[in-house]
């Protein structure tokens, strides 16, 4: 416990901040709480003992802990951020259908990540890895053709060169796979409209596009058959493509 506090103090010092009694208190409470605690939950717990500590302070301190690599920020798809102390590190396997989450750990992956950081000249302070898939129960529940397809897509995506359109370099050719980065989320009306508009302009699902001009800023110029289409960067980041060789 003491060396965690020591480490956090060093981190704060490096950020030109100080270890205030409030921060120390929040750290203690956080470390002694159960796994995956949300800001609200932690604040409620703290407020019972010290009502002077506000919600914002708790939130900010948790962010600092997260920056320091002491807390892991998680979002299991319900929009609520939960935090967890990184004592024993583990990653997550999340079912896209029922949101069930399993903790996983693999030494080989961990050491490969260390090496990747090292190669790029980084010292690793933390990481999070969430793998998405369909859990066994969900798979047993009478998979229809469409589910099978999306499952295959998810599985294959690791082997395909899947990328947002906006990240491709000039001259790259790629096939349009999806108009949203998350294929499993339902589309709302504005998404549908946008998708429709993009498709009408000629940027259709399954079409091969060539990147003609992708600068650091501004829109991206694409060529589809004989068409030249300029698309805004934000929209282009939402379009998922499979890079062709």
């Amino acid at each position: 416990m003491e060396d965690i506090k020591k480490y956090f103090e060093t981190f704060l010092h490096w950020k030109q901040l100080k270890m205030t009694p409030q921060r120390a208190f929040i750290l203690d409470e956080f470390l002694s709480s159960q796994k995956h605690i949300s800001v609200e939950e932690l604040h409620r717990k703290i407020a019972q003992k010290d009502s002077t500590i506000g919600h914002t302070t708790v939130y900010r301190t948790l962010r600092l802990l997260s920056d320091a690599g002491l807390a892991r920020e998680e979002d299991f798809g319900d929009g609520i951020k939960r935090y967890e102390y990184e004592s024993e590190h583990h990653d997550h396997l999340i079912c896209v259908s029922c949101k069930k989450t399993v903790e996983i750990f693999d030494n080989q992956i961990e050491s490969m990540q260390e090496r990747l950081a090292e190669v790029n000249g980084y010292i690793l302070t933390g990481h999070k890895m969430d793998l998405y898939g369909i859990c066994a129960q969900c798979m047993d529940k009478a998979p229809s053709d469409a589910d099978e397809d999306s499952y295959k897509k998810t599985v294959n995506s690791k082997f395909m060169k899947l990328s947002p359109l906006g990240l491709l370099k000039n001259g790259t050719k790629a096939r349009v796979i999806s108009f949203t980065p998350n294929m499993n989320l339902p589309k709302d009306v504005s998404d549908q409209r946008k998708e429709r508009r993009i498709q009408e302009m000629g940027l259709r699902l399954g079409k091969t596009v060539e990147i003609l001009n992708n600068g650091a800023r501004g829109p991206i110029l694409l060529k589809i058959d004989e068409l030249r289409i300029a698309i805004g960067r934000t929209a282009a980041m939402d379009i998922m493509v499979e890079v062709e060789d």
């Binding site: 302009m201 300029a230 805004g232 934000t234 929209a235």
Partner: peptide, 9 residues
């Protein structure tokens, strides 16, 4: 709004 436009030949 999002931006999409055709660049004619």
């Amino acid at each position: 709004s999002f931006f999409i436009m055709e660049l004619p030949s």
